[in-house]
Design a protein around this nucleic acid. Structure first.
Length: 273
DNA sequence: CTTCGTTCCTGGAAGC
DNA sequence: TGCTTCCAGGAACGAA
């Protein structure tokens, strides 16, 4: 599932192949992916536009045509952006195709089809989940003071809290579990009951796991690939995620599984209090 | 206002 | 072996 490190890796691998190229043709193979405006309007506006840059914010990617005009893409669980020579046939699960002037096709593929695209032009439509994104891990806006301020106001389980994109932009289920494991915090613990030391450890943990994820080019379980079609390697470094029933890498205790906010959660009952 | 549960979707794993 | 059931999960949405 693409989270911040995976989306960042997609951005990096995509940029050299598509930035500066003009979109000659757009084909939408699955209408519901286009959330705004209509499919016809989307195609009409995007056609003949040149991609000037590709930015990432949280788990969103923005293909810019100008400062204020861009396609906002969310990969959700199984979305992928693949660049292939125009001579190659459609990849499996293709939902949108952009034919580029440079002889390459940019494909959006999506097995579970939860991924989305919005065309944003001059703020004529406000995507709240995008506008309200919290600060990014590793950014100067994401400070310990900020995290403490937010934590003390929340009664949610700490895991649910750090998954809230309005609090921190970019964490998903994998990195949330990992950050809590690094910080030795019990995932179901109510946010506002965290002690100062735990808040500090969580702050460090979030930055650490995101940094490691980016360094390892993302975490691949089933479906995630970057724009080159390559998998990440961070799955080999995980402390807890997907390791239910396996020994904790610190103490050897078998890791436990539970549901928090409907999300599968893995943790060490001995290390995480 | 916050918090919680449900929904969307498909492939693959688990269960019988 | 072959069928059925369950599970994975980001975020929108409605309900409490």
């Amino acid at each position: 599932m693409p989270e911040m490190p995976e989306v960042e890796q997609v951005r990096k691998t995509l940029a050299p192949k598509i930035v500066g190229s003009k979109i000659k043709k757009v084909e939408v193979l699955l209408d519901r992916i286009i959330k705004y405006p209509t499919v016809a309007e989307f195609i009409k506006v995007v056609k003949n536009k040149t991609i000037t840059s590709i930015e990432r914010r949280g788990k969103y990617l923005a293909l810019h045509f100008s400062k204020d005009q861009f396609i906002l893409i969310h990969l959700r669980m199984t979305g992928a952006l693949l660049v292939m020579p125009k001579t190659e046939t459609a990849p499996k699960y293709a939902t949108v195709k952009f034919e580029l002037e440079n002889g390459l096709n940019l494909w959006f593929t999506d097995i579970r089809t939860f991924g989305t695209m919005h065309l944003i032009t001059n703020k004529d439509v406000v995507i709240e989940s995008y506008e309200n994104l919290g600060p990014e891990p590793l950014s100067k806006e994401f400070t310990l003071e900020y995290l403490k301020e937010k934590i003390k106001k929340s009664k949610k389980p700490i895991k649910t809290f750090i998954l809230d994109q309005n609090v921190i932009a970019g964490l998903g289920n994998i990195y949330a579990d990992e950050a809590l494991a690094v910080a030795n915090i019990y995932p179901a613990k109510e946010a506002n009951t965290l002690k100062a030391k735990e808040q500090q450890a969580l702050y460090v943990g979030i930055n650490q796991v995101i940094k490691q994820g980016i360094k390892n080019k993302g975490t691949t379980f089933r479906d995630y690939k970057d724009a080159d079609g390559n998998k990440g390697s961070n799955q080999n470094k995980l402390l807890v995620y997907s390791r239910k029933g396996k020994p904790c890498k610190t103490c050897g205790t078998l890791l436990e599984g539970m549901k928090i906010g409907g999300r599968g959660t893995v943790y060490c009952k001995k290390c995480q209090k």
